[in-house]
Each structure stands twice: as structure tokens, then as C-alpha cells.
Write a protein that binds this DNA or RNA. Structure first.
Lengths: 341, 341
DNA sequence: CTGAAAGCGCTTACAG
DNA sequence: CTGAAAGCGCTTACAG
């Protein structure tokens, strides 16, 4: 920078003004400085600027994984918005490891990110307070269970998601359903499903609820293979399957088809999430769309506002409503006789 | 830091030594300093350290997207290795937009990342030289077409991947195949497929090569719907389909099944990539596994070595070999008569 | 093993 | 609109 200043015959303060685009420098000297910059191939040292201004133009994002479509989309959206605002994304993953999460949390804060977004459920412990004490704005998102009350959390109404899935099936007349859910992680969704049935005086028996570990297509497939024999005769089959994620739903659909059962003619299937594949499955999957991009936008905007000086509090939390997306995998229930045919 | 020093009754240089774990401080004063750190809740300012040392402990990674399983895995692997080495990941996406890529490239370099990894094909232009001139190590990975010769590139032998897919089908006796490929992006893979058939004096006619834009499951499905009528009678169907990615292969399998064709009894299908879903598809998908995690590890290791002082050059480039993963979607060709049955 | 000084490359007031 | 000074919070030699 000093080199540039000397070459342009000005002081480095003037160079600084030119670089940052401040309008306090004459067009003439600006041109000289810009020429010097070009000749010398100067690029400003953002670390030094960061030290001087206290801002690194970087936002940290801690996510469980990016290997899942849900989080990929959220990360993509956050990165997009940050880029539009001139910010960078420092990404860290927890892999469901609380220890790793805490390590990242402390190292991200001491790296002086301007703000920090934390997704997924793990015990924040004392770190939330440490971060707040350091003055770096922190927000939470995609928090399904027990968010710390002191931090702003932009998340989705997962209970409502379960409810909408259940209500959709109820509106189609389904009474006898089976549930395949990643439990206990998705128990809030299950609560919602139950509420939808309870509204009509129906209940979902415990022995119709099948846990699917990890919510993957593969484990779901296996869970169905395990569950089907338990139903006995075809007439005893559920008329619909409700799942806690689209990945599970896709696995269920494949398993049903491989068993000679047609979706939705024999069994309706509904998922939760609305991952890209849901619209491309055959049949296309009816699901409850979780507004992940909206969540990402809102959380990012909150953080950006906080960086700009707006105070942040638990009052900035918001709960986004999911929406049912009706596609081809669900259909009105038919009498057992017709199904048995 | 000065506060800590005063409270511990030492100078800030001593505090610095304690923080960085240097063994030049007595256990006694170390304890005093650590107590002061704990009481004051001091965390070192890494930006200041970065300015003083010239290292930010951050590696930038520029990828086309993270919404695709291929890149998700690569990013996850890179992040893992960086974390193990105490480095952070600054992630930026190009979305196939060269302008956006170049913008990120220059802003990442001026943000003073310690090293930069760039994935995917786009015109690096003059930026490669700018980065090298700045002294920040740059490496390329997952570079399918025309990597700049001056930069080290850790990539996969995509031509070989196409060849292995083709040879696999040849070994099963298939002669009449159709190709569904994302062209021109995957033309190198197509070259490899052709080479496998040429080895036996066979060729893949142009009218059996179907472009699939974007390599998605959906577009592949549509491409098959469009292509099938062109084959006329069942006896004229290809005995196998070779695709340039697993996503395409999955779409092809679904489209075939929805048309009443059995995989692999009527048509064998082979993919390229080995995304997680390939192993969970029904039937499980035979594919050519691209060693993406190995590529990620090697590229990251290269960069870490470069940060440590090892000079980097085009000579550090390496080309990783893919491997065929034989699963259930391919089977030996049967006489047309048997298939027509 | 510890203390005083200079410097990393910027920005921020503050005079001219 | 431009110039000289101080400071951001560390680290790096260099004396003691």
C-alpha cells in the first residue's frame, strides 16, 4: 500500500480512500492511484483491514452435515445471501458429534467471525454465553428440539409438519396407517401426526410406529421388510404410510413396490421435507415442504442486521410454517374389498 | 491480552507464549497466566495473530455447487482433513457462473486464505497467475477438461471411467448399447466408452447417443421417454444403457421400469460416480466409482504441504484411477429371442 | 526464562 | 480534499 502511495505520489491514507471507494478524493489523484494499483498488482490485505476495523466480512455456519439434501440447500442459500452482501462463508460440520461441535464453536468465535449461525440440535452448553459475551451475534436455525431460550432461533414448525402430513391422510379418508420415523430425533413430528388423528378421535397404535435409524433410504427399506410380515393378511395392511422424512418415504415406496404393492393404489405414502428427489420420484411424492430456503434467508438476514448494529434477542425468533405438497403418492382410501381385488 | 498479563503479573509476551503452548515458560507462571485467562474469559484474537504471522489458518475452496452428492462428499472430506490439521474451510460456490467464480477467486485471495482449492471446470483466466503471484498455493481438483498446465491438479481419469463402464458391458457380451450422457460436459467419459467398444472393433452409432442436459434424474427420465420410441420394435432395443453419471442411470432405470422393462433382465444399466444412492437403488446400480474422497484427501494434503513450505508445481498433479463396482443392474447379454419372450 | 521495542498492513480521527 | 500520528492485538527478534 505504501508502495502504491509512493508510486502515485500520495500518502497511503489516500490510497485507502481510493480502495474503499470513498468520494473524498479528486478524480485526478484517483486515476493516478488506480494506475499505480494496476501497475503494482496491489490487492488490499483484508486481514489487516479486519484487525483495524474489527470486521472480517465472514460469517461462520455450523451444520451437522452437508451430505444431506436438506442441509445442502440451506448452506447453498446462506452462501448465496452472504455473497450478495459481500460476506464470506466459513463452514464447519459437526457430524452429530457434540464434542466436535463445541471445538468448532470455540475456534470459530476466536477466529473472529462477524456472526455465527448454528444449525441442528446439540447441547450448546456454556458456549452460547461465551459467544454472546464476545459480542459476536449468534443465531440458531433448523432447531427441532429445545432451543436455548436466550438465543434467537429461526426454525420450522416441525410439529405442524407432522400434523399436516397426518391431516392430509385424514382428508383422504385414511384411518389405518403405519408410521416410519427416525426416533427419537423426529418425535416432535410424530406428535403432530398423532394430533391430526386425535382430532378425529383416532389414535396411532404404538405397534404401528416403526423406528428408522438415521432416516436413510436404505434403513427405511429394511424397516419395511421387517414390518410387513407383522401385518398378516393383505386386508390388515395399512392403507397409508406416513414417514418423518422424504428419504424414508422413498425407501418405503421402493420396498412396497418390490413387494408387489402399488403406490398409491394399494398404499398411500406421504413424506416430510420436500427434497428435490421428491418431485422426481415415481410416483411423485406427496410431502410436507419444510421452508428451508426461507429459513436460511431469514436467519442470514437476522445476522446481517445484527452485524449492522441491530440488537439481537430471543424475541427475533420465528417459527416458519410448512406446507403440504400434494402429488401422486397419495390417493383417497378405498374399501378393503376393492383393495384386496 | 494486556489485561491478562497485568492480572497475572507478567508481560503480554509471556501470555503469548502460554497461549501458543511454547515450552519456554515456567510451570508456576504458566499456572498464573492460565488462571488469569480463565478469570477474564480471554480468547486470543486470531485476526491479529493472522496479521502478525501472515497465516490465517484458513483454506478457501471454490466448488460449482454443494447440492450434488459428488461435491458434497468432496467438501465433507476436505473439511474433515482441514479440521484435523487445525484449519478452517472458507467455502464459495460458482453455480456454473464463470463471472461469479472469478469474483470469488479475487475476493478469496485478498482475504488472505493460506491456500486455495478450486474444483470444476471454468476458465481460470488470468486469476491463476494472480494467485500464484500473491504466493498463496493453489491447487485444482475434479478438473475434467483442459486443466491449466501451470497449476497442480488432482483429478480423476474420467476417460478411464467411461472406458471401464464400456468394458464392463463388453465383458458381459453387450454389443448394442445406448448412451445417455450430459454433453458436452462429459464428452471425455464418452470418449472412454467409445474406446472400450472400439477395442473389439465395435462402434457406438451417433444416433444411440442421447444428450441429457444437467445430468439430473429428471432430465434423464425425460430423455428415455423421448428415446424409446426411436428404437421401434422390442428386438431393436439396446441390451444395455451406459450413462455418464449415476443420477442419469437412476433416472434411466425408473423410466425403463415405468415402461415395463426389467433391469437387468431386459436392459442392463451402468452408471459413473458411485453416489451413496447407487448402492441403495433397486436393483443396486453397477457403476464406476470415482475416487472423490481420495482426490479430496490428496488435494488437501498437497495444499497443506505447500503451506508448510514445500514448493508446488504442475509436477504435483495426479490422475486417480476409477474402479468398476459391479452390482445388480447389469447382467450378461441374452439372445434376442430370450429377451423377447 | 522474562521484559521493552518494533512491526504486520490497514483504518480512524485530527490538523492543515 | 490531503498529510502525519496513533492504534487494532498480536508475534518476532533481541537484550537482560
Amino acid at each position: 500500500m505504501l508502495d502504491v502511495a509512493r508510486r502515485a505520489g500520495v500518502t497511503k491514507q489516500t490510497v485507502s480512500n481510493v480502495v474503499r471507494g470513498r468520494q473524498v478524493v479528486s478524480a485526478e489523484t484517483r486515476a493516478k492511484v488506480e494506475a499505480a494499483i494496476a501497475e503494482l498488482g496491489y490487492t488490499p490485505n483484508m486481514v489487516a483491514r479486519g484487525l483495524a476495523t474489527g470486521s472480517t466480512m465472514t460469517v461462520g455456519f455450523l451444520v451437522p452435515t452437508i451430505a444431506h439434501p436438506f442441509y445442502s440447500e440451506v448452506v447453498e442459500e446462506v452462501e448465496s445471501l452472504l455473497e450478495e452482501s459481500g460476506y464470506h462463508l466459513l463452514l464447519a460440520t459437526t457430524r452429530g458429534d457434540g464434542e466436535r461441535a463445541r471445538r468448532h464453536l470455540s475456534s470459530l468465535s476466536s477466529r473472529s467471525v462477524d456472526a455465527l449461525l448454528v444449525a441442528g440440535d446439540f447441547d450448546l452448553g456454556e458456549h452460547a454465553d461465551v459467544l454472546r459475551a464476545k459480542g459476536v451475534p449468534v443465531a440458531l436455525c433448523a432447531w427441532e428440539i429445545d432451543p436455548p431460550p436466550s438465543l434467537p432461533v429461526v426454525t420450522i414448525d416441525y410439529e405442524e409438519a407432522g400434523f399436516l402430513a397426518g391431516r392430509h391422510l385424514r382428508e383422504l379418508g385414511h384411518e389405518r396407517v403405519a408410521v416410519f420415523a427416525d426416533l427419537p430425533a423426529h418425535r416432535v413430528r410424530l406428535d403432530g401426526m398423532r394430533r391430526a388423528f386425535a382430532l378425529d378421535g383416532l389414535s396411532v397404535p404404538e405397534d404401528r410406529i416403526f423406528p428408522v435409524h438415521g432416516a436413510s433410504l436404505e434403513t427405511a427399506y429394511e424397516a419395511v421388510e421387517h414390518a410387513l410380515p407383522l401385518f398378516g393378511a393383505a386386508g390388515r395392511l395399512p392403507t397409508a404410510v406416513i414417514t418423518s422424512t422424504d428419504a424414508i418415504a422413498l425407501g418405503v415406496m421402493q420396498a412396497l413396490r418390490d413387494r408387489g404393492l402399488r403406490v398409491p393404489q394399494d398404499v398411500s405414502v406421504v413424506g416430510i421435507d420436500d427434497i428435490p428427489q421428491a418431485a422426481h420420484a415415481h410416483p411423485t411424492l406427496t410431502t410436507v415442504a419444510l421452508p428451508k430456503r426461507r429459513m436460511a434467508r431469514q436467519a442470514t438476514a437476522l445476522l446481517l442486521a445484527a452485524i449492522a448494529g441491530e440488537p439481537l434477542s430471543g424475541a427475533d425468533s420465528s417459527l416458519l410454517s410448512p406446507e403440504i405438497v400434494s402429488r401422486a403418492s397419495t390417493t383417497p382410501v378405498r374399501p378393503a374389498a376393492a383393495r384386496a381385488r
